[in-house]
Design a protein around this nucleic acid. Sequence first.
DNA 1: GTCTATAAATCGATAGAC
DNA 2: GTCTATCGATTTATAGAC
Lengths: 225, 225
Amino acid sequence: MPTARERVRAEITGEITDAARRQLAEVGAAALSLRAVARELGMASSALYRYFPSRDDLLTRLIIDGYDALGAAAEAADDPTAAPLDRWLAVCRAVRAWAHAHPHEYALLYGSPVPGYSAPQDTIPAAARVGVVLGRVLGDAARAGALPDAAGGDAPGLVTEDARAVLGGEHPALDDAVRVRALLAWSSVYGTVSFELFGHLVGSVADGDRYFDRAMTELARMIGL
Amino acid sequence: MPTARERVRAEITGEITDAARRQLAEVGAAALSLRAVARELGMASSALYRYFPSRDDLLTRLIIDGYDALGAAAEAADDPTAAPLDRWLAVCRAVRAWAHAHPHEYALLYGSPVPGYSAPQDTIPAAARVGVVLGRVLGDAARAGALPDAAGGDAPGLVTEDARAVLGGEHPALDDAVRVRALLAWSSVYGTVSFELFGHLVGSVADGDRYFDRAMTELARMIGL
DNA sequence: GTCTATAAATCGATAGAC
DNA sequence: GTCTATCGATTTATAGAC
């Protein structure tokens, strides 16, 4: 049971990260400034250092929160009892919807690396969540025998030991060819969402919603779902 | 024939953009500073304003140069007399190679949008070049009847009028289903390159070169090349 | 076209009073 | 845990001499 002191601390921490997210939208991650956050909250800049020892720690908090929010959205969208194609489409749409609702956080997670900042190991579990969901969809399909073999045969050793468990789990029907396909699928979803969000489809695609559904359906068919 | 004055101006302009590119690698686009460029060149900061009226104009120059360099690399890699699959692989590898050789410029072109900066129309022709090359590869294959029909049927109206000419050109065998496939292909290549470059495959993929070739081959097969 | 000088800001981080 | 004050740096952009 949290003490009153801890509750207050948690609340102020939340106000700080909220203000930081607003600032993120305005000036971007590279220019995220503790002073501006403090100004917005009416605090002295030095007071923030009691909550975050440095600017990078605040950035890390935002990154982990972002990965967790996106990962939770993807997990919530996946109904393991549904058909593989439906699961796939639901997860893809959830990823895109989250990205559109939080474009600046998405850019923080998946855009250019922030110069001078290197993400600590703490971010890894949160960062993996979406990949795990997509890996599970493909893995379940493979285990059910619903996924055709890769045309190029097996691809042993392409995926690291660590990633094997994450990308669909272990099963005789699951080789690295399937896991590479899962990575390619996730990369393609990410590429499609990012292209749209970062403005590279402006002028080429007439209807973003229709285009996305069409592209993801096409992609699913290509993958064999 | 350029006067001596013009030659000197062109040379100094080149030195400025070179220094700016070096700075880009260190601090990123958002923190690109005219003063730091001037310092590196041993010039007064105010002198730079005779070459670039503002920081954004310098940024625009870097972006156009980057798109042009990448586009030229993609065009040089495409041999129109080769087989579709070989053309595809060659272009994909060229894009990845350029990205790896110029990671910070790639991030400037395809990473997070720079806050407070909006690219002028001048950048569009250069930005389109890679897409044109990939569109031509798929378009040529479609015209030769070597591209299977999309499983989902035609997709009329998904691609804008403007983009139609760019993505493979006009031909009875070329409908918007093919053009959407070209956009999806380009998005997937971009997603794969960016995932690797931005560090999202660290710890999951053992051998980047092998993974990329495998992924692009798989993708080509999916597309029908 | 390049220089010095300057205006009017910004920043991260710390010291020390309370 | 919040404040003031401070250090030592940064920036864009302009004015005006030469």
